[in-house]
Design a binder for these strands. Structure first.
Length: 181
DNA sequence: AAATGCGCCAACCGCGTGCGC
DNA sequence: AGCGCACGCGGTTGGCGCATT
């Protein structure tokens, strides 16, 4: 188990001073070796805590604030496709972090998704069949089978989907993009 | 005005994985 | 090949603020 050891380490909310210290250190040495960062920066924090703070708030390319409709829609679609793979979803949504997306899901979208589940649905199997046959005819090769199959293997295997033709296209594009990341 | 409940968000925790030695 | 360290991920918790009674 990773153990950042010291029981007298600071916990809880970060102060502006701590943020500044961390940001300054990372700007100088880069976002790696978080244990070293924690020790050498003089912050009385564990490495994990520093990493999380940097990734979620101090990184220059992270966007704060309300999610747009487009982002919300994207999250809903991606979640339906791959489940609670927050880091994967975050990679598809520029400037958003996995933690932020996870929180937004839990706070706002879970209920919405529940409602949508009750709409007329087709099975995942049917969707896959559709998708692969279309790909075969296009000669497009994808190695993302695992992402769909694997994405749902922990639990909700019989999850239902309501997938229109346009959505199917969208999913397909998503799978193609996956190879670039 | 005070008490209580609820929702949201920041942060922590435990576990799995990758990588270097 | 095995071991230990560091990192990344997803689930969960704690605390704050707002709404309701």
């Amino acid at each position: 188990m990773e153990n950042d050891g010291n029981t007298s380490l600071n916990k809880g909310a970060w102060s502006a001073d701590e943020d500044a210290t961390l940001a300054q250190y990372v700007a100088l040495h880069g976002p790696k070796r978080w244990k070293c960062v924690a020790i050498k920066s003089g912050l009385n924090r564990c490495g994990k805590s520093c990493r999380l703070r940097w990734l979620n708030y101090l990184r220059p390319d992270v966007k704060r604030g309300n999610f747009s409709d487009a982002e919300e829609d994207l999250i809903l679609r991606l979640h339906r496709l791959i489940g609670n793979r927050w880091s994967l979803i975050a990679k598809r949504i520029p400037e958003r972090t996995d933690n932020e997306i996870k929180n937004y899901w839990n706070a706002h979208l879970r209920k919405k998704a529940k409602l949508m589940e009750k709409l007329p649905a087709i099975s995942l199997a049917a969707m896959k069949e559709n998708l692969w046959s279309e790909e075969a005819s296009n000669g497009t090769e994808s190695q993302e089978t695992e992402d769909i199959g694997g994405g749902n293997e922990d639990g909700d295997d019989n999850e239902s989907f309501d997938v229109s033709a346009s959505e199917l296209n969208w999913v397909k594009r998503f799978l193609e993009l996956e190879e670039d990341v």
